[in-house]
């Protein structure tokens, strides 16, 4: 029997964008797309794709559907999960969907999942690197009324359930989750695989399946925000570093220690 996995993936500005390129338009409270740095699939979401692929590698018959809500999708970025080995890409693509809040995103995801058909597992990222909220995957579990396990670093099929490890601050827990469940995946799972040439070729031939809000029976009024963004700005830093220079690097080490002692820091 095929295990149908939905992976939630968000398109985000590349978090490796150099700080000098990170700019905000304070008149619209939005981040300006950095020049020449294309968007990427959120890092933890690629970990989630990797998690799904690991179930396949372990011999399970899985179908992996990547689901994303947004607008102005860049296909080179969004097709990466397909190139890694995912089977389908479903986009809810409509104007303004890149600016909705977590509550609205959960509504759209829930509607899209319902429309797309039955599933056995939903994997989401731990958090999206734009708004750093860590809400959507947790909220989706609540709205769908499904069991939830957060911060999953390892998973395997165990009969009808999923055996997994959940990261806790000083170690991990061994957990058994039923299907269907919602899991949030964290980077402790390990690096997502690089797409190989064959994967890239296959992905280039695949077309995303696209839903609009209307297709999902939703309208803008369903998406009104619970939080109103008043101001978005880059905080000023007025720290001034005191660089310690010695005759050579070893001497700098000595002088640094003496300087910290003089300051009564050590």
């Amino acid at each position: 029997m095929t295990l149908r996995i939905v992976v939630l993936a968000k398109q985000v500005p590349d978090p490796e964008t150099p700080p000098s390129q990170f700019k905000i338009d304070e008149s619209t409270n939005s981040v300006l797309p950095p020049n020449g740095v294309p968007p990427v699939v959120n890092g933890f979401d690629l970990n989630a794709v990797e998690a799904a692929l690991q179930l396949r590698d372990a011999g399970a018959d899985v179908e992996i559907t990547v689901l994303s809500v947004g607008s102005e999708f860049v296909m080179d970025a969004m097709k990466k999960p397909l190139a890694m080995g995912a089977d389908r890409l479903v986009l809810v693509d409509d104007e303004g969907l890149d600016r909705i809040d977590a509550a609205a995103t959960v509504k759209v995801l829930a509607a899209a999942i319902e429309k797309d058909g039955p599933f056995d597992l939903i994997l989401g990222g731990r958090q999206a690197s734009d708004w750093d909220q860590a809400h959507v995957t947790l909220g989706l579990a609540e709205v769908l009324g499904l069991p939830l396990v957060s911060l999953v670093q390892k998973l395997e099929l165990d009969g009808d359930s999923i055996a997994l490890r959940r990261v806790i601050p000083d170690g991990y827990q061994v957990v058994s989750a039923p299907t269907p469940s919602v899991l949030t995946i964290t980077n402790e799972l390990g690096e997502p695989r690089y797409p190989n040439l064959r994967g890239i070729m296959q992905a280039s031939r695949k077309k995303p399946e696209i839903f609009s809000l209307v297709d999902l029976g939703l309208s803008d009024s369903d998406l009104s925000p619970k939080l109103e963004l008043k101001r978005l700005y880059v905080p000023e830093s007025n720290r001034q570093v005191e660089l310690i220079e010695g005759d050579d690097e070893a001497d700098s080490g000595v002088k640094l220690a003496l300087r910290l002692r003089k300051e009564k820091l050590i």
Binding site: P13, P15, W131, L227, L229
Partner: peptide
């Protein structure tokens, strides 16, 4: 903090 701490966002609820 948002965007990894590169920016701060003020919200009203």
């Amino acid at each position: 903090p948002v965007y990894g701490g590169s920016a701060l966002a003020e919200f009203e609820i």
